[in-house]
């Protein structure tokens, strides 16, 4: 990468009250309050909010926003595929896959010969429901740090799915209530279960249905799914019922007979957090990069400068500096932990 000839990216990409702002293009990336012009990396509610003016995003992300917000999603939307370049004023914007959820992208911004990659949320391991992360060489790499501590090392997905199937085998008389984020995690879990040979119907809490339909429409087959609302809750022995994490401790869960509660989240790695959620079967499964993925990504991308957004920034900045990167923390507000009981989990 040649030396940056133009102005320092710090002068044209800044953190403002509304979020990360690109001055020459006059747009925000994942604004957390309504903006005239927004580039949206993916559909999770803490990144894609309603009420923006013009929105640029991938087809998958736009579909998710439309499904969630209807007419309030935007005034005007523009779709860009991975690798396709769109000019916003003097800034060239393109998307690269982030491997986080369906449609998730890194925003690649080029201005005066300098390239900045805003990774949004990402992970590096295989996900059968979305396109894998693609490292893009750049001058500044902006990374998340949700699991930015070396205690977070997500085990292989197959091990966690095996735990679930072992519990099902050990307790054939109990329904399994499986709490998972409604966008992304739920569909990935369904695919992983299908790959592990589960071909029985999987039951869905009402909050899961619309996004599962959307994934199928976007070409991710999920197999037989049944809304739990119409089913006899006393007759779900041995069945898997997917629901938002908050529903596990909600009055909703009371109708089931001796349910076995499970939850899939990267936070389940830490016992105390798992115990706080009161689940019997914690599954360590995350759509965010773990520590090894975060640190490997810094090397793979090779950007001399690293800006760290939300999460446990301090440890990742410390590590990056020790590895010779020019690293700093960007304090972005309004980002949630992946299983926070936000609107994602409303019944």
């Amino acid at each position: 990468m040649p030396a940056t000839p133009g102005p320092d990216p710090e002068s044209w990409l800044t953190v403002e009250a509304g979020g990360l702002y690109c001055r020459p293009g006059d747009f925000y990336i994942d604004p957390h309050r309504p903006a005239d012009r927004a580039v949206v990396t993916h559909g999770h509610a803490d990144h894609a909010r309603p009420g923006n003016g013009a929105v640029l995003a991938t087809e998958g992300t736009l579909a998710i926003m439309r499904a969630r917000y209807g007419d309030a999603a935007w005034r005007a939307a523009q779709c860009a595929g991975y690798g396709e370049t769109v000019r916003i004023g003097p800034v060239a914007v393109s998307f690269a896959p982030a491997g986080h959820v369906l449609g998730s992208a890194q925003a690649v911004l080029e201005y005066h010969g300098a390239r900045v990659v805003v990774s949004g949320d990402y992970k590096r391991r295989r996900d059968p429901t979305c396109t894998a992360f693609d490292p893009v060489p750049c001058d500044v790499f902006i990374t998340e740090a949700t699991f930015g501590l070396p205690v977070f090392r997500h085990p292989p997905d197959a091990e966690e799915v095996a735990k679930l199937l072992a519990a099902q085998e050990a307790f054939p008389e109990r329904p399994i209530l499986l709490g998972a984020y409604a966008l992304g995690k739920a569909q990935r879990l369904i695919r992983l279960l299908r790959e592990a040979g589960v071909d029985r119907p999987i039951y869905l809490h009402g909050a899961m249905q619309a996004l599962c339909d959307l994934y199928e429409a976007q070409g991710v087959p999920l197999g037989p799914l049944v809304p739990v609302a119409g089913a006899d809750r006393k007759r779900l022995a041995g069945e898997i019922v997917l629901c938002p994490p908050s529903a596990l401790a909600d009055r909703w869960s009371r109708g089931f007979k001796d349910p076995l509660t499970a939850m899939a989240s990267g936070w389940m790695r830490v016992r105390q957090r798992a115990r706080q959620r009161n689940v019997e079967l914690p599954l360590i499964l995350s759509d965010h990069a773990d520590w090894d993925e975060l640190t490997a990504t810094l090397e793979d991308v090779g950007a001399p400068r690293v800006w760290v957004t939300h999460g446990r920034e301090e440890a990742l900045v410390h590590h990056a500096r020790a590895r010779g990167f020019d690293a700093k923390a960007l304090s972005l507000v309004g980002r949630e932990d992946e299983d926070a009981d936000g609107e994602e989990s409303a019944p």
Partner: peptide
């Protein structure tokens, strides 16, 4: 393990 990373992790995990 890098002592800073250990300290930050221990603070977070608590055990």
């Amino acid at each position: 393990v890098d002592p800073t990373l250990f300290r930050l992790s221990y603070d977070y995990v608590g055990d």
